[in-house]
Design a binder for these strands. Structure first.
Lengths: 351, 351
DNA sequence: CTTCTCCATGGAAACGATTCCATCATGCTT
DNA sequence: AAGCATGATGGAATCGTTTCCATGGAGAAG
C-alpha cells in the first residue's frame, strides 16, 4: 500500500525541477541528457502521472462516456466493444452506464458523467431530444449511436411558434432544429426496404413489423416499403423489456393469424418472435417468415437459422468513438453505415 | 459552453466562505439557516462539485473498474449489468475495459486504471496470479468474478522454498499464497457434477468436456465427476476466440465419433458445439447430447432448446461490486453462488 | 460577573499536475 | 569583443476541492 510516486519525487531523484519532468513526459523540449535521465528515473520509480492532478489543471477530464440501454443485448455489447477498441487505441478510459432504456436513469447518468468531468459521450439515447439539451448546453460533446433521440413531444407546438414568428415579421427561422448532434447510424431505410422487397418477392403480402423503442426511422422505412394501404394493425411496438417484446409478438400472432411474414426491428424482438411463434405452434418459415434486424452470433444457432439484416455494430461504436474524440474544428456530420441482408433459413415462399 | 459554477461561486452568491459550502454539501455541521441558503444557491446555480478537485484533495478517485474479456459474450454482459446496478445504487461511476482474454491488454488496462486513480476493480481475470500481484501491491482492491487467475507457473518452486524455510528454523509459513484476493464464483464443482450425473443417468459413458480459458475448477470437477479412468482425449480446450472454440469442437467430434455427450464449459463453447455438430450432421440430442454452462437468453431459441447449467451472472457481478465497494474492515472471503441444472431438450438417452 | 465550553464560520494549506515567465548559459552575428 | 537570439531550466501560480486551525460569539457553569 505504498503511496505512488509523484512528479516531485521524480524531480528530486533526477536532480531537476518538476517543470522539466513535466516537459519531458509530455513531449516538450529538453536536452537529450536530461530527458534520458528523467525517463530512467521515472521508469525506475514506476511513476504514473495522476489523472486527478492533470484534469484539475487543464479543466477537462480525458475519457469518454458510453451510455447504452442494456449490455445484455448482444448488439449493444458489440457496439460497446467498438467504442472500447477505439478508446484503447486513443489511450482514453471509458466510463460506462447502462440506462435500461429509461430516460430518467439516462439523465441521471449524464449528470454523473458531467460531475466526473467526462465531457464526451457516445450514447444510444433513450430520452427525447429535449432531455438531451441540458447535456449539450453544459458543454458536452455528444455523439449518438444506433438511434436518434425521439422527436420531442412539443412537435405540435411548432406550428403556433411558426405563426408567431411570421406575425413578428421575423424570418421564419428553422423551427428549433431538434439537436445538431452528430450520429452514427445504420442505413435503416435501405435495410428495411431490402428486407421488405425480399419478402414481397417471396409472395408475402401481409407483412408485420415488430418495433422497439427509438427507431422511428425503421418504422417509417417499413411504411414506405410496404406501400400504399398500410395495415396499421400489423405494426406493433414493445418497450425495451423482454416481457414486453414477447407480449407484443404473441399478441400480434394471435390477433392477426392471417399475417405471413414478420420483420423484427431488433434482436430482442426477433428473439421474442421466435419464442412466441413456437409457443403458438407456428412453424418458421412454413407458417410465418421472419426477418430480424441485427446479425447476432446466435442467429445462426436457431433452426432454421435466422435471415437477418446485418448492421455493423462494432463499427458503429468505433466510428462514434472516433467522432466524439476528434470533435474539433468542423462539426462532423452524421455517418450512415451500410446494412446487408443475410439470407439464411427463416423465410420461405408464401403459401 | 458556459463554464461550470465552482464552489467559490456558490460561496460568494450565498455570502459565506467556501469552507462552509463544502461542509454543507458533504453533510458537515452548519446552522439551519446557512445550510438552507447554501443549498438553495447551489441548486439555483446548478452547482456540481468537480470530481477532479475532490479526487486530488483526498488522493483517491471514487469509482470502480470493471475488466471483462469480451462484452460480446452474453454472460459477461449480464455480469456487467450486475456490477453497474450496484455501482449506480452506490453512486459510483464505472470505468470499463475489455481485455480480449489477453493478459497483456489486461495489465495495460490495470495500468490505466491506476493512472486514473481507480483503485477498486472487479475483474474477470485473464492473466495469472503473478500478473495481478503488481496491481494489488500498488494498493488496488481487486475482486475477481467468475474466474480465478490461473495458478502461477512458479508453483514448482514452492517445494524448495518450503525446505529452505525449514532449514532456517522459521515456522513453515504458508507457501506464498497465490493471492489473498476475494472472489465471487459460481459453484462450478456442483454444477458440473450435477450435469455429469444427469448425463450418466441417461446412460452416457463417453462424455467429453469442451473448455475455455480460466476455468481450471470446472475441468477438475469434470475429471472428478466422470470418475476413475479419465479419457484425456475427451477433454479439449479452446482459447477465447470464436474460431478457436469452433475448431476445438469440430476437432473433438471428428477425432472421437464414439462420444455420446458433451459438456461445454461456457456459452461460447456451447455455441461452437451446436455449430460444429450441425456442420458434421450430428443431430442433437439423437446423435450427441449437449449440456452448456451459462444460461443465456438464446439457449431457449435453439432447437432443441439447450439444457444448461445456469449460474447467476447478474448476481455474481452485483456481489462482486458490493465486495469491492465495502472492502473495509474485515477482508471478505470468497463468495460461491449456487448453480442450477435447467433441463430443456438437448440431452437424450444414450443409444 | 467571569471563565469555560461549544459551535458556526472563514482563512489558508494541501493535493499533483501543467504552464507562464524569468533566468541563465551558450553560441552566433556584426 | 559585445550584443543578441536561442534553448534549457526552475520557480511559482493555478485549477477546485477538503480539511485543519484560529477566531469570535453565545450560552452555561461557577
Amino acid at each position: 500500500m505504498e503511496k505512488r510516486a509523484t512528479i516531485k519525487d521524480v524531480a528530486e531523484a533526477a536532480g531537476v525541477g518538476i517543470a522539466t519532468v513535466s516537459r519531458v513526459l509530455s513531449g516538450g523540449s529538453a536536452s537529450p541528457g536530461t530527458r534520458e535521465r528523467v525517463l530512467a528515473v521515472a521508469a525506475q520509480l514506476d511513476y504514473r502521472p495522476s489523472a486527478a492532478g492533470r484534469n484539475l489543471r487543464q479543466r477537462r477530464t480525458g475519457g469518454l462516456g458510453l451510455l447504452v440501454p442494456d449490455l445484455t443485448d448482444t448488439f449493444f455489447g458489440l457496439l460497446a466493444e467498438g467504442v472500447l477498441a477505439h478508446a484503447r487505441s486513443a489511450g482514453e478510459p471509458v466510463v460506462l452506464g447502462s440506462t435500461g432504456d429509461d430516460p430518467e436513469q439516462e439523465s441521471e447518468m449524464v449528470g454523473m458523467l458531467l460531475e466526473q468531468g467526462v465531457d464526451r459521450v457516445v450514447a444510444v439515447p433513450s430520452g427525447d431530444a429535449e432531455s438531451w439539451r441540458p447535456a449539450v448546453r453544459a458543454g458536452m460533446t455528444v455523439v449518438f449511436a444506433d438511434r436518434l433521440p425521439g422527436e420531442s413531444p412539443d412537435q405540435d407546438a411548432e406550428g403556433p411558434d411558426h405563426d408567431l414568428m411570421l406575425l413578428d415579421g421575423l424570418p421564419p427561422a428553422p423551427p428549433a432544429r431538434p439537436l445538431d448532434t452528430p450520429a452514427v447510424l445504420a442505413d435503416d431505410r435501405s435495410g428495411i426496404r431490402t428486407a421488405v422487397r425480399y419478402l414481397k418477392g417471396l409472395g408475402h403480402r401481409r407483412i408485420a413489423y415488430l418495433g422497439g423503442p427509438g427507431h422511428e426511422r425503421r418504422v417509417a422505412a417499413f411504411r414506405e416499403a410496404v406501400g400504399a394501404p398500410v395495415d396499421e394493425e400489423l405494426i406493433v411496438f414493445a418497450t425495451g423489456s423482454r416481457d414486453s417484446a414477447y407480449a407484443a409478438a404473441a399478441g400480434l400472432f394471435q390477433s392477426r393469424p392471417d399475417l405471413s411474414a414478420v420483420v423484427a426491428g431488433g434482436n430482442a424482438l426477433g428473439e421474442a418472435a421466435v419464442l412466441a411463434a413456437r409457443e403458438l405452434d407456428l412453424r418458421v418459415p412454413r407458417d410465418v417468415s421472419l426477418v430480424m434486424y441485427d446479425d447476432v452470433p446466435w442467429a445462426e444457432l436457431c433452426s432454421p437459422p435466422l435471415t437477418v439484416i446485418a448492421q455493423p455494430g462494432r463499427e458503429i461504436g468505433y466510428r462514434a468513438a472516433e467522432l466524439v474524440l476528434r470533435a474539433g474544428a468542423r462539426r462532423p456530420r452524421t455517418v450512415v453505415l451500410p446494412t446487408e441482408l443475410i439470407v439464411r433459413g427463416s423465410c420461405g415462399p408464401h403459401r
